[in-house]
Amino acid sequence: MALPSQHRLRSPRSFSKVYHQGRRLGSQYLAIKALKNPVPDDRSPKDLSSGICFGVSISRKVHKRAVVRNRLKRQIHAALSTLLPRATGAWWVVINVRTTAIDCKYYDFLRELESLLTALEVLDGN
C-alpha cells in the first residue's frame, strides 16, 4: 500500500529546508529529521498540504541495486500509511535509511518509525 500523494514530500527545496531547520532523531536502522509547521516556498505548491508530508531518502551506500532500495522504500511507505491516522499537526518529515536496514522487515520499520515519530511528537503518543 503506497503513501497517498498529498502526504509525500517532493521538492528538493522542501527536503533541504527540513535538513537545515528540522529536529533530528536516529535509531539503528533509520535517521529522521522533522520540521514542525513548515512555511512552504512559492515554488513548491505540491508541498502545501495542511497536514503531514513524508520524504524517504535511501543512498546507494545502503545497497547498490535499485531493486533492493525500492523494496525498502515500499516497506517504509506501507508502515507510514499505517501510522498516518495518528499524526498530529503540520509536519515535514524526511526519513534516511541507514546501511544496517538491509535485512529489516516491515514490522521492524513499523516499530522503529512509531517510536521515533512519537519521540519527535509527530505522532500522538496514546
Rank of each mutant, 00 (worst) to 15 (best):
Pro40Ala: 14
Lys105Met: 07
Asp41Ala: 15
Val93Gln: 08
Val93Ala: 05
Val39Cys: 01
Ala79Leu: 03
Trp92Ile: 11
Ser57Ile: 15
Asp124Phe: 11
Arg60Trp: 02
His77Thr: 00
Asp41His: 11
Asp124Leu: 13
Lys105Gly: 12
Arg8Val: 14
Val56Trp: 00
Ile102Asp: 06
Thr99Asn: 13
Ser81Arg: 15
Arg111Met: 05
Thr99Glu: 15
Arg98Cys: 05
Gly22Val: 05
Ser16Phe: 14
Gly125Phe: 07
Gly22Lys: 06
Thr118Ile: 11
Ile32Asp: 01
Asn126Cys: 10
Val93Thr: 07
Arg13Thr: 10
Leu30Tyr: 01
Leu116Gly: 03
Glu114Arg: 12
Ser115Asn: 10
Ala31Val: 14
Gly22Cys: 08
Ser5Asp: 04
Tyr107Pro: 08
Thr100Trp: 08
Glu112Ile: 04
Lys46Glu: 13
Ser14Asp: 10
Val39Asp: 02
Asn96Glu: 02
Val18Tyr: 02
Leu113Met: 06
Ala79Arg: 00
Pro45Glu: 02
Arg60Leu: 07
Leu72His: 06
Val67Trp: 03
Asp41Gln: 12
Arg71His: 04
Trp91Glu: 04
Lys33Ala: 11
Thr88Asp: 04
Lys36Arg: 15
Leu120Pro: 13
Ser59Lys: 10
Leu120Val: 08
Arg71Glu: 00
Ala66Glu: 01
Arg86His: 11
Ala66Lys: 04
His7Arg: 11
Leu25Pro: 08
Arg86Trp: 03
Trp91Asp: 05
Ser115Cys: 10
Leu116Ala: 07
Glu121Ser: 15
Pro45Leu: 04
Gln75Thr: 04
Val62Arg: 09
Trp92Leu: 05
Gln28Leu: 14
Arg86Ala: 15
Ala79Glu: 01
Pro85Leu: 12
Pro4Ser: 10
Ala78Cys: 08
Lys61Leu: 10
Ser16Tyr: 08
Val94Arg: 06
Lys33His: 11
His63Trp: 10
Ile95Pro: 12
Lys33Ile: 14
Arg111Lys: 06
Val67Phe: 03
Ser57Glu: 03
Tyr29Phe: 13
Ser57Tyr: 05
Ser27Phe: 01
Val68Tyr: 04
Tyr106Val: 08
Arg111Trp: 00
Asp42His: 10
Pro12Asn: 14
Asp42Tyr: 04
Phe15Lys: 06
Val94Leu: 07
Pro4Val: 05
Arg69Tyr: 00
Trp91Lys: 08
Ala101Asp: 01
Leu83Met: 10
His7Phe: 14
Ser5Trp: 01
Val56Asp: 00
Glu112His: 02
Ser16Thr: 15
Ala34Leu: 02
Arg10Asp: 00
Gly89Tyr: 01
Val56Arg: 02
Arg8Met: 13
Leu83Ile: 05
Ser59Met: 09
Leu3Met: 07
Ser27Val: 11
Leu3Tyr: 00
Arg98Gln: 08
Ile52Gly: 09
Leu110Cys: 03
Thr118Cys: 14
